[in-house]
Simulated assay, not measured.
Amino acid sequence: MRRALLIVLVALPLAACDDMNHQPRYDSYEKSMLFADGKALQAPPAGTVARDDPERDAALANRPAVSGRILLRGQERFGIYCAPCHDAAGYGNGTVPARGFPHPPSFHIDRLRSAPSRYFVDIITNGHGAMYSYADRVSPADRWAIAAYIRALQLSQDAPAAILPAEDRARLEDAGS
């Protein structure tokens, strides 16, 4: 009985290994009946982006002019990708840190106020600290739009009264007294 059991235990793994060595597969340029065009190598789906795509790199290098449309797009993308951690006003008190994750820095500290817009684009592209890269989620144009919106947030929280129209400045002074 022991001998029969030992033979079965030795033979069973050997039989399984043979199936692993002979799996059906296609070489890249081989014909295939699996696809309608008869080719094994298929074109990537629409929207697929290579990591070294020169067009994407060029779009990242060229900063678009800031416009109302760009700021609205930046606000939308900021709300989707950034606000969960940075909060809607950019102070770093979003819902994610409220649940125990590290707080990101406020966009309103002096270091980030004086940082160039390219800094924010680079952080979105490559990540920093606990923040991972958003390069595969946010297009280069949208990264620039988010950076422009961050600048608008910074200005909204620390705008000098001197840049306000006279009537708004008067209202501000009346409210302060």
Rank of each mutant, 00 (worst) to 15 (best):
H108T: 09
R151S: 15
P160I: 09
T125K: 12
A148L: 11
L41M: 12
I80Y: 08
A175E: 09
D122G: 08
C85Y: 00
G79H: 01
L164A: 07
D27S: 12
Q157C: 02
P84M: 11
S67H: 10
I123C: 03
L72S: 14
P54F: 00
D53N: 15
Q75W: 02
E30V: 05
R137V: 07
S28I: 14
D136T: 13
M1P: 06
S28D: 13
V8K: 09
N93E: 14
A98Y: 03
I109H: 07
S114R: 14
D168C: 12
G127D: 07
K31A: 14
C17E: 10
A147F: 01
R169Y: 06
A145F: 02
G176Y: 09
R2P: 10
M1L: 13
R73Q: 08
R118V: 02
V49S: 06
D158W: 01
T125P: 04
R25G: 12
L60T: 05
G92K: 10
L71R: 02
Y26V: 04
A89Y: 04
D87F: 03
I109L: 02
P64Q: 00
H103F: 09
V49C: 14
Q75V: 09
I150D: 02
G74I: 05
D37R: 01
A89F: 10
L155G: 08
P64L: 04
D57N: 12
D174P: 00
A152M: 02
I123Y: 00
H128R: 15
G127N: 07
A152K: 10
D52W: 05
A162C: 03
S177I: 11
Y91C: 01
S28Q: 12
I163M: 13
Y134E: 07
I124M: 14
R118M: 00
P140V: 00
Y29R: 07
K39Q: 14
D168S: 10
A4T: 11
V49F: 11
A11W: 04
R151P: 03
P84D: 10
Y81H: 13
A115F: 04
A46G: 09
P165S: 06
Y119I: 00
Q157N: 02
A170H: 11
I163Q: 11
H128L: 15
A148V: 13
G127E: 10
L112R: 13
S156H: 10
A16P: 03
I150F: 04
A135P: 06
Y132M: 15
Y81V: 13
G38E: 07
I7T: 13
D158P: 01
Y134S: 10
E167N: 12
F35N: 13
R169M: 12
M1W: 09
Q157Y: 01
D110V: 13
R56C: 00
L6R: 12
Q23P: 03
I124V: 10
R25T: 11
M33F: 14
A88Q: 09
L72C: 07
G90S: 05
F120T: 02
F101C: 02
I150L: 11
G68M: 01
S177Y: 08
F78C: 09
R151H: 11
A170G: 03
C82N: 07
R63F: 01
N62M: 14
L41H: 04
P104E: 09
A89H: 11
A141Y: 04
M33V: 11
I146E: 02
D87C: 08
I7E: 02
Q23A: 10
P13F: 06
C17D: 06
A89V: 15
F78K: 01
D27P: 05
V8N: 04
